[in-house]
């Protein structure tokens, strides 16, 4: 049976893992390669590296980080943050990424999804959607959550799928860093609207939150950062808990 995936996300700035609350107030959380090594031992299913500075100078540092993380794990590795062009994506993949995650660039130039899907296959292209609740719907934001994209998350996820995206990484901006639980309603709305897998993100604070998003939220995978970084809950404990609740996981 296909298992539910647990994905660890590392927000990286200047080669170090950092984590904020609702996209602000960053604090340091360690060395990316060392964290990746620990997650691998604990049984993480995938790793995501998000470059949260995405300046020109940070590009080379990012390639070094991707390479260092890729040396530690034989698991799917996704890289996102500031990937604006085919060249940016190629640089990430050449450095060792298996998938790239597009966010702002996908909305600005949706053709980029198709271009990358043709070059690397849909399985290598994740469309990341940052959204918050508004007027009974789910409003998409871009530029690290600062700019209203005037799009609905469900409609945009459908379009991204039709353009060739292989997965959707859906982050609730309302819940990001709050540890109040995933936005299960939003996740279910998007997951039910597309055939490609949906990765739920934002709000993980306890093992029960993961069980919720896999059942009520219809998520195919769940992503978290700080809950794993600070060892508040180990990946292996989380998976045993999910298994005890009848949710299939890789142990």
């Amino acid at each position: 049976m296909l298992t539910k995936r647990i994905i660890a996300c590392m927000d990286v700035r200047d080669g170090q893992v950092v984590k904020g609350v609702q996209f602000q107030q960053l604090r340091h959380a360690g060395d990316p390669a060392a964290l990746a090594r620990r997650y691998n031992v604990e049984g993480i299913d995938e790793v995501v590296v998000l470059d949260i500075t995405a300046t020109l100078e940070s590009r080379q540092a990012l390639a070094r980080t991707i390479h260092a993380v890729a040396q530690e794990i034989f698991l799917p590795l996704t890289v996102g943050g500031g990937i604006r062009s085919e060249d940016d994506a190629a640089a990430a993949i050449d450095a060792g990424a298996d998938k790239v995650s597009l966010n702002t660039a996908a909305l600005r130039q949706p053709d980029l999804i198709t271009t990358l899907a043709r070059r690397y296959g849909s399985q290598a292209v994740i469309c990341a959607i940052d959204a918050k609740r508004r007027d009974g719907g789910f409003a998409v934001y871009v530029r690290s959550g600062t700019t209203d994209a005037a799009r609905d998350a469900v409609a945009w996820a459908r379009e991204a799928e039709s353009r060739g995206a292989g997965e959707i990484l859906l982050t609730s901006m309302d819940r990001d860093g709050t540890k109040a639980g995933f936005d299960c309603e939003m996740t279910a709305a998007v997951s039910d609207a597309v055939d490609i897998p949906v990765i739920a993100s934002g709000g993980a604070g306890s093992v029960d939150h993961f069980a919720d998003v896999f059942t009520r939220g219809h998520a195919d995978a769940a992503l978290a950062a700080s809950i794993f970084h600070y060892a508040e809950s180990s990946v292996s404990e989380l998976k045993r808990h999910l298994q005890a609740h009848g949710i299939p996981v890789r142990l």
Binding site: K4, R5, D45, D195, D220
Partner: peptide, 8 residues
């Protein structure tokens, strides 16, 4: 879902 993505 199809594609079949993940650990099986």
């Amino acid at each position: 879902k199809v594609p079949h993505v993940g650990w099986n």
